[in-house]
Amino acid sequence: MTDFDPIYSMVSAKAIKGLIESNYALAGLASCRLLQRGLNDVYLVSSTSGERYVFRLSHHRVRGPADVKSETDFLIHVSKLGVPVATPIPTIGCELFLQVHAPEGRREGVLFQAVDGREPHAGDVGDAHANGRTLALLHNAAETYIPNAPLYKLDLEHLLYRPLARIRSSGVIEDPSVLDELEQIAERTGAAIKLSANLSWTYCHGDCHGFNSKITEAGEAVFFDFDDGGPGYLAYDLAVFLWAQVSFGRETTRAWTSFLDGYRLIRPVTSDDFEAALRFVVVRHVWLMGEHASRIEEWGSNNVRWPLRRLSCSLQSTLRPASISRTPSAF
């Protein structure tokens, strides 16, 4: 008999339902179904009374284990200050997360109350405004939060240089000229950001691209999916939304303007952070390419090669934010 070293296992919805029933004080769970698999596996759980919950089982990633301790601690802090976020539900033992022993090793699970509301609409200025406002509330609340030994910092090493190294080592980009151009763009971008001495630092959502939220009937954006968050550049947190508006040939900069308007209703954006956000769009793109490159062992090189080529080809579109108005009125 040969022993194998698994890198990913799929936990059945039935097993997740039993896990929740054993570890949480929830009565009458009626169903559990897989919503999606990807960087995490996400399940929708429903009770007989109509309550809905979301259980997220963290995935093994090249960067290391999921930082659920910092994430859940931060969510409790900001929710107490009125920031609309999906909050974790404590276990019977009053823990905000639990550990699952899967064949590939330990995986962390968090149960959330499902967020009510509709999906945001791409390019919708009202939804963008709501997202900007909630992000500003989040950053305000982060000013009174003291991170408790977070595992990751959203700095250039984490967001740019290590992802770039993963792309290089993956071998998926076979054209040396394409790889050289990518590395040159990344190096220039990182060097320019380093020259900005007055960039703000905060606890970031980390993935505020506009769709990690639900829009309530009152028009409020409720945030979820904080597992890419951590202490980091405020400009990066802004840039993720801009990246979503200008990458892959999109040109929905009106939504970016509305997002900033919503943000500035709550707190100002310094000129240094605004300028850096334009550059962090490229950083975000390289980060995503690095995430794909790190999945070769699980997804296979053929499945990674196509999206990575698409990301590489779309890199020029991520440079367009440089043309966005820098007039004083924008601040």
Score class of each variant (00 low, 15 high):
Thr2Asp: 09
Asp3Tyr: 08
Phe4Glu: 13
Ala27Leu: 12
Ala27Asn: 15
Gly28Ile: 15
Ser31Gln: 07
Cys32Gly: 09
Arg33Phe: 14
Gly38Ala: 05
Asp41Leu: 14
Val54Trp: 11
Phe55Lys: 00
Phe55Asn: 02
Leu57Gln: 03
His59Glu: 07
Val62Ala: 14
Ala66Thr: 03
Lys69Phe: 10
Asp73Ser: 15
Phe74Ala: 01
Ser79Val: 02
Val85Ala: 00
Ala86Val: 03
Ile92Thr: 09
Gly93Arg: 09
Cys94Leu: 06
Phe97Asp: 03
Arg106Asn: 06
Leu111Gly: 03
Gly117Asp: 00
Pro120Ser: 09
Ala122Glu: 11
Ala122Ser: 13
Ala122Trp: 15
Ala128Ile: 01
Ala130Ile: 02
Thr134Lys: 08
Leu135Ser: 02
Leu138Phe: 11
Ala142Tyr: 03
Pro150Asn: 13
Lys153Ile: 08
Glu157Ser: 05
Leu160Ser: 13
Pro163Met: 01
Ala165Cys: 09
Arg166Tyr: 12
Gly171Cys: 11
Pro176Glu: 02
Ser177Lys: 02
Leu179Tyr: 01
Asp180Phe: 05
Ile185Tyr: 01
Thr189Arg: 06
Leu199Cys: 07
Thr202Leu: 06
Gly206Tyr: 02
His209Ile: 04
His209Ala: 10
Ser213Val: 12
Ile215Gln: 01
Ala218Val: 01
Ala221Ile: 07
Ala221Met: 07
Asp225His: 05
Phe226Asp: 00
Phe226Arg: 03
Phe226Ala: 01
Pro231Leu: 11
Ala235Ile: 09
Trp243Cys: 10
Ala244Trp: 06
Val246Ala: 02
Ser247His: 12
Glu251Cys: 01
Arg254Asn: 09
Thr257Cys: 05
Asp261Trp: 12
Val269His: 10
Val269Tyr: 08
Asp273Arg: 08
Asp273Trp: 12
Phe280Asp: 00
Phe280Cys: 03
Val281Glu: 08
Val283Leu: 02
Gly290Trp: 11
Arg295Trp: 06
Asn302Leu: 07
Pro307Ser: 06
Gln316Val: 14
Thr318Trp: 07
Arg326Val: 13
Thr327Leu: 14
Pro328Trp: 14
Ser329Gly: 12
